[in-house]
Write a protein that binds this DNA or RNA. Structure first.
Lengths: 155, 155
DNA sequence: TCAGCTATTTATAAGAT
DNA sequence: TATCTTATAAATAGCTG
């Protein structure tokens, strides 16, 4: 124990809160203090049940994050509740509305398409100029069937 | 100076890092530590030139933020650069694809609807059972017209 | 709930490894 | 550059008003 030669003269010194000019020293400080910051955040979460998201860009442009329960959940909650409605979400809702509208139209149109199909099945595709009385009568029968189907299905 | 009656027995005690049960005590701690956290963040920004965003939801659901240069700028930078493609953006793209798909279908369907309209204009709506030869011939003419229109327009 | 006041616990600047 | 050590600067728990 008694190593009389304890190292002397070292120890923390007061540091002014201003930009650290030495880049190596700056990075050491960044690393230490980032660790401390995240630890404090973690303690605050545990002690008080808080939800916290932290995003840090280092002086070297690297990104570090802390999140409880997760960065995303906290950020989303912030963007929403804060009524902050960013452009992305706004577009998103607009598109949802448009999508629903268009889907409804499409459904309506598809019913109509069945009519076309029935007409084709009934021989509507035949060259009309060559129709004779007999064919006209056949066509009448076909139309009767088509109309019946259509009436049953849509009217 | 020498006020011999200094207050005794007070002072910090070690606190275990676990949820504080007393809600009043919890809030006091939250308030103090949140202030400390934001101060640390501020110092880190100044000392090291970092960019930081912090979002905190208190146990009472209130939101507090710290941002340098601003919460928004840091969060945006995070969401974008991190290639993080969050759920929101993902949904957004999915919906865009669906929307384009459905829009194409709708356009196709609308062309077909014109056929229906032409049929109606040509007297297709008349009661078919009462059609006589004359009417059948009229109808033939109508169909010729319809077919011509349809061919011109769609084929 | 929030602001001061200590007595302590923590965080951390320097230096060494 | 990352960690460990040590002395000191800071943060903060428990009180009081």
């Amino acid at each position: 124990m008694d190593t009389t030669e304890k190292k002397r003269g070292t120890g923390r010194k007061k540091v002014p809160i201003e930009k650290i000019e030495s880049s190596s020293q700056r990075y050491v400080t960044f690393s230490k203090r980032r660790t401390g910051l995240f630890k404090k955040a973690s303690e605050l979460c545990i002690l008080c049940g808080a939800e916290i998201a932290i995003v840090v860009f280092s002086p070297r442009e690297k990104v570090y994050t802390f999140g409880n329960p997760s960065v995303d959940s906290v950020v989303d909650r912030f963007l929403n509740q804060h009524n902050h409605m960013n452009a992305l979400e706004h577009d998103h809702l607009q598109q949802q509305k448009q999508f629903i509208e268009v889907s409804k139209q499409l459904e309506a149109e598809k019913k109509k398409e069945v009519i076309i199909e029935n007409l084709k099945l009934s021989g509507w595709d035949a060259p009309i100029d060559s129709l004779q009385l007999y064919e006209l009568q056949q066509m009448k029968q076909a139309l009767v069937q088509v109309k019946k189907k259509v009436v049953e299905e849509f009217l």
